Computed example of a mutant assay.
Amino acid sequence: MDAALQARVTTLLHDAGIEVGGPCGHDIQVHDRRFFARVIAGGSLALGESYMDGWWDARQLDDLLLRLMQAHLDQRVQGWRDLADAVRARVLNAQAGQGSYEVGRRHYDLGNDLYQAMLGRRLVYSCGYWPKARDLDGAQEAKLDLVCRKLGLRPGQRVLDIGCGWGEALKFASERYGVSGVGVTISEEQSTHARELCAGLPVEIRLQDYRQLDEHFDAVFSIGMFEHVGVRNYRHFFDVARRCLAPHGLLLLHTIGGNVSRYRTDPWIARYIFPNSMLPSAAQITRAFEGRFVLEDWHGFGADYDLTLQAWRSNIERAWASLDPRRYDERFKRMWRFYLAASMASFRCRHAQLWQLVLSPDGVPGGYTAAR
């Protein structure tokens, strides 16, 4: 049986252009022969877990995962836990109530030292904008400025940041464009840092679920938070944004998206990185804001996320030696490497997209001119 399973996995990998023990950077080096049975039984979840356990390696992990995705092997090998997770996602609203705070506790509260080491000068945990940027810091500043220009921010306006992270976007908008604002996050670590970062500015940071918001703002933006909302809550998200937005204001939504409508994320990502997350499709987004907003602009620049992730990987690999090994042990490092590599591969093969939408309550009189 073990020989048959090994032969089956070897054939599947060969179909993706990957050889077991091969000489290329994208080839897999198997250190534990139990890998073959484990990955057949567990699918993509077992692939990631066995890498975390040190059962296999590849010199160019992102290239190996890219080939697996391009060959759609995740659809050919599914474990029983994949099926259980799919049923759970269909039945439960995992992002409701205390479930909405789980990703904050398990991911964003891992430690600000980790994110400071990875993200660069600005703690911005979302795709940079690279057309004219020479490095990560420049790409993130260009992205923040792009958001402000698309919203047409002006001095004296009051803005809302849904999912404000470590406060960098509100700080940038306040200092560069003269606005005041409110930011909400479900992460205690983020809220503490954001309050310190924005001290002295007309910015309020709240540890609060976005669904509790009911006050007026001249503009609303949400950068890299919609991936945690969940399809059962998309309409509610846009309802909240609509009731908080001034009649002539604009909403900017910055989100990763997928090519197909789904109801859950990859099982390994859900278990180890982003619990209760899912990537919206274009159809799911448009259905959710239909009758609530007018679409003014839809801007895609998903290829820039591959560049952003590569920069994050370079930063964190340089920083591992300076981080506490008791908190970030070898298994954690392998988990993080797999996460970044899988994300690169997903954007590189265009399975994942990066979108910025600009929406208005009733249409911009005379039309909207999109900044780029």
Rank of each mutant, 00 (worst) to 15 (best):
G43M: 05
V77P: 06
W298C: 14
E102Y: 05
Y115P: 01
C127S: 10
G302H: 09
R81F: 02
Y339A: 08
T308P: 08
W80E: 09
G257M: 14
L197V: 07
A199R: 15
C148E: 03
R211A: 06
R271P: 00
A371Q: 14
R122T: 13
Y272R: 14
E330I: 11
H248P: 00
S343K: 09
V159D: 07
G257V: 12
V9L: 08
T10L: 01
W336A: 10
T308R: 09
Y115K: 03
Y177G: 05
V294F: 01
I186C: 06
E102W: 05
D27F: 10
G200T: 12
D27E: 12
V39L: 01
G25T: 08
A89S: 15
H351G: 11
E19S: 15
I186N: 08
S281Q: 08
A341T: 08
M69V: 04
D137G: 08
Y108L: 04
A319K: 05
G17S: 12
D209W: 03
L136W: 04
L279Q: 15
P361I: 02
V179Y: 02
C148I: 05
H72S: 15
R287S: 11
W312A: 09
I162S: 03
D304M: 02
G183F: 03
R81S: 12
V159M: 09
I316M: 04
R331M: 12
L144A: 12
W298K: 10
A96W: 00
A58F: 03
H193F: 15
D85A: 12
D161E: 14
A3W: 07
E196N: 07
T10H: 08
V103P: 07
R158M: 07
R334M: 04
G79D: 07
A3S: 14
G97A: 14
S187E: 07
W268C: 11
L323T: 09
L252Y: 07
I162P: 01
H228G: 07
G224W: 06
R350L: 07
A139V: 10
I28F: 07
L61M: 05
K171T: 03
G21M: 08
M52S: 01
V91A: 10
D362H: 13
A117V: 12
G178A: 11
V9M: 08
H248Y: 03
R149W: 00
E102T: 14
A270E: 13
A345S: 14
G366W: 12
D109N: 10
D15T: 15
V9H: 03
V91I: 15
H193S: 10
D113V: 06
D209H: 05
I285Q: 04
R242Q: 13
E204S: 15
H228F: 03
G300D: 14
R287L: 04
L250M: 12
R262H: 10
G258E: 13
L114R: 01
L5V: 06
W166Y: 09
D113S: 10
T286A: 13
A194Y: 04
I18T: 13
L110H: 01
H31M: 03
E290M: 00
E290L: 00
R287Q: 14
S314T: 15
L73T: 11
L83F: 05
Y272F: 15
Q310W: 01
R134T: 15
T192G: 11
R34G: 05
W336N: 09
A283W: 04
V182F: 02
L151R: 05
H107R: 02
D62N: 08
Q356R: 08
E168G: 06
T185Y: 04
H31K: 11
Y129V: 11
D239S: 09
E227Q: 12
A46C: 01
L307D: 03
N276F: 10
G48F: 02
